[in-house]
């Protein structure tokens, strides 16, 4: 449905997007995560035919975004990260205008507008002027606007940004419904947990480079080269430290600040190496009480790899 090959966008000497390769199947919800300025909006602008890439190609539904922009526009619903509304329009007029702009016939518009307003919970605001709507309502109205021509692909750039928790939950609910409608959705956020819940696949982008992509588990594996082993012993802590420090896969052994007999071991070996390490420890009569791998937190990893931006 969406095929991106070696997509590059440069502004002078600054590279906003560097050789991005991505393939998103029909009906997939793909989350694009990265800090501000990582290249998410650039990618979305290129897919929305608003920006030409310096190099590479991007296809939506088989149509090249630079060669067949008109066809691409027919198949996408685009919601930018920052957008304005025509304040003097009423809600239904706003949708009617965009419906007409997308070439939806008048009678179809009349039928689809109430359905869309129902979907985004704005049916009771049908006759309100757009400028009296709250930010969350405007976000939802913009989402309804992106759906007016029933596109197969939705490109949503930070749809939940600036919303209060309640509005975020409402937006998440709407996105789940869209997922059930088998829309292909590409959605961005700089907040990872928000996306990891609702997306089938994630891509993490930083400085214009896609540093990891796949489902949540795959991303953890790609990003987490080293793991932390939490090892608690009954006694003999000095001997235990000496034993683990000898292993070539152990990078660092730290004692827990609060629990005296607990160690945090930074380990880069494979799962088999890990089994072997435990076996050796037992053979060497290390009095192990617990031997666990620290549960990885995707957000921690994300924060770790993007901390250079702060």
């Amino acid at each position: 449905m969406i095929e991106i090959n070696n997509l590059t966008k440069k502004y002078g000497s600054f590279t906003a997007l560097n050789n991005l390769n991505l393939s998103i199947d029909k009906g997939t919800v793909f989350g694009f995560v990265g800090p501000n300025g990582a290249g998410k909006s650039t990618t979305f602008s290129i897919l929305a035919t608003l920006l030409a890439p310096t190099n590479g190609t991007a296809y939506v539904n088989g149509y090249d975004v630079t060669k067949n922009p008109k066809q691409v526009r027919k198949h996408i619903g685009y919601m930018p990260d920052f957008f304005g509304v025509y304040d003097q329009f009423k809600v239904h007029e706003y949708l009617d205008f965009y419906g007409a702009s997308y070439g939806v016939p008048s009678n179809e518009r009349k039928a689809i507008i109430p359905q869309l307003l129902e979907l985004v919970n704005l049916i009771d605001k049908k006759d309100s002027y757009v400028d009296v709507l709250s930010r969350g309502m405007k976000q939802r109205l913009c989402l309804a606007r992106a759906l007016i021509h029933d596109p197969e692909v939705l490109i949503l750039d930070e749809p939940a940004s600036g919303l209060d928790p309640r509005a975020r939950i409402e937006m998440r609910g709407i996105l789940k419904e869209l997922k059930n409608m088998e829309k292909t959705i590409i959605i961005s956020s700089h907040i990872l947990p928000e996306l990891s819940e609702m997306c089938d696949y994630l891509g993490i982008i930083e400085h214009g480079n896609l540093i990891a992509s796949g489902n949540v588990g795959q991303i953890e594996n790609q990003l987490q080269a080293q793991k932390i082993l939490n090892i608690q012993v009954k006694n003999n802590i000095e001997r235990t430290i000496a034993f683990f420090q000898e292993d070539p896969n152990v990078l660092q052994v730290e004692r827990d600040e609060k629990t005296e007999l607990l160690l945090h071991v930074s380990y880069e070996g494979t799962e088999d190496d890990q089994i072997e390490l435990l076996r050796k420890a037992v053979k060497n009569e290390i009095p192990i009480l617990t031997f666990t791998q620290k549960q990885s937190n995707l957000e921690d990893i994300f924060m770790e790899i993007t901390k250079g931006d702060e």
Partner: peptide
């Protein structure tokens, strides 16, 4: 400036 142009440019209007 109103940030409505981008949306308008993604419609079918030439």
């Amino acid at each position: 400036e109103m940030q409505t142009l981008n949306i308008l440019l993604t419609t079918q209007q030439s």
